[in-house]
């Protein structure tokens, strides 16, 4: 029995390693041009022009596609939209695919991910926890985005998908409208990684919001206007980045992260006693801080205030830098 379990353990480990290697390899193979572009890669007709500003939301690692979102996420985005007149919100980008392909809709393993997702959503299923494999899959994509070898290519691919989504939502090339990227948890790494390409391509002010985000240092920090890291005192996950990414260790002062921190480009904002996800998280509208605002309102206020703060005059300064 123990031998069989041991063999199973080894088989699962080898399977995991192969899967973990397959993700960066698929990025490299796409980059090398060995794989044909997926239909999503073709530019779709632009939507009716909008003045913006634009907010692109990249979900956390439990996401499965650009279309999937939780009611809590929708509530946060609605709350931000209520605070900023003309804000265009873009949610149809799947951060964990360089081709913006949802994991349950295409590919050889689509059936497998769809099955896992159905397990995850079925609260009575004893195999519900197996659905966490989706999180693991997406975490590996976060690791690819954060890796200095693969990140430039992966982030380039996702950045193109974001720009296409912006065009679908009415972004006018050359308008200089502000683009804000909001990444929740692992989505923050993708938001930061892609932001430099978006700024360099659109030549517009770009700022990044990290909601309890996990992020490595990035070359994007030299291009973007600001990075705001929002965290809660009970969120244990957001500390992870300070430990696992050496480029964020204070002893390496020359890294992009520490330079941006010294220049004041990175702002760390404590929102209150929030946890990472679930009840008591940044998206909770049923718990309140001392001034009577819900956790969700605090999060929405903080983000909206900073989007409003990046006026065209400050944007011009940032672009000239």
């Amino acid at each position: 029995m123990i031998t069989a379990l041991s063999w199973l353990g080894w088989a699962l480990l080898i399977l995991f390693i192969l899967f973990a290697i397959a993700i960066p390899l698929s990025v490299l193979i796409w980059w090398a041009g060995w794989r044909k572009a997926t239909p999503q890669n073709r530019l779709q007709p632009p939507g009716p022009p909008a003045a913006g500003p634009f907010l692109v939301y990249l979900s956390g690692v439990d996401d499965i596609s650009g279309e999937f979102s939780t009611p809590f996420e929708d509530a946060l985005l609605d709350a931000i939209a209520e605070r900023i007149p003309g804000l265009v919100i873009v949610t149809d980008v799947f951060a964990y695919s360089f081709a913006n392909v949802g994991i349950t809709s295409e590919g050889n393993l689509a059936w497998f991910w769809a099955w896992l997702n159905s397990l995850r959503l079925n609260k009575k299923s004893p195999l519900r926890r197996v659905g966490r494999l989706i999180n693991l899959r997406n975490m590996l994509h976060v690791a690819v985005s954060a890796d200095r070898r693969y990140g430039p290519m992966y982030n380039y691919g996702v950045a193109e998908m974001i720009i296409q989504a912006l065009l679908r939502h009415g972004y006018v090339l050359g308008s200089g409208s502000q683009v804000a990227l909001l990444g929740y948890s692992g989505g923050a790494q993708i938001a930061l990684g892609t932001s430099g390409y978006i700024q360099a391509t659109l030549r517009a002010p770009v700022q990044v919001f990290s909601l309890g985000g996990i992020m490595n240092s990035s070359d994007s920090l030299s291009r973007i206007s600001a990075l705001t890291h929002l965290y809660g005192t009970r969120d244990r996950w957001h500390h992870l980045s300070d430990l696992i990414f050496p480029a964020r260790w204070p002893i390496f002062r020359g890294t992009q992260w520490n330079q941006a921190l010294a220049m004041g480009k990175i702002e760390k904002v404590c929102l209150g006693p929030m946890v990472h996800t679930g009840r008591g998280s940044y998206l909770d509208a049923t718990r309140y801080v001392e001034d009577g605002r819900s956790y969700l309102d605090v999060t929405a206020d903080t983000i909206a205030e900073r989007i409003m703060r990046l006026t065209p005059s400050t944007a011009a300064t940032s672009l000239g830098a």
Partner: peptide, 16 residues
């Protein structure tokens, strides 16, 4: 080298 990879995504730059 990594530094030589493109920073701008062609086809989306504003015409100046």
């Amino acid at each position: 080298r990594r530094e030589e990879l493109p920073q701008v995504i062609p086809g989306y730059e504003p015409v100046v």
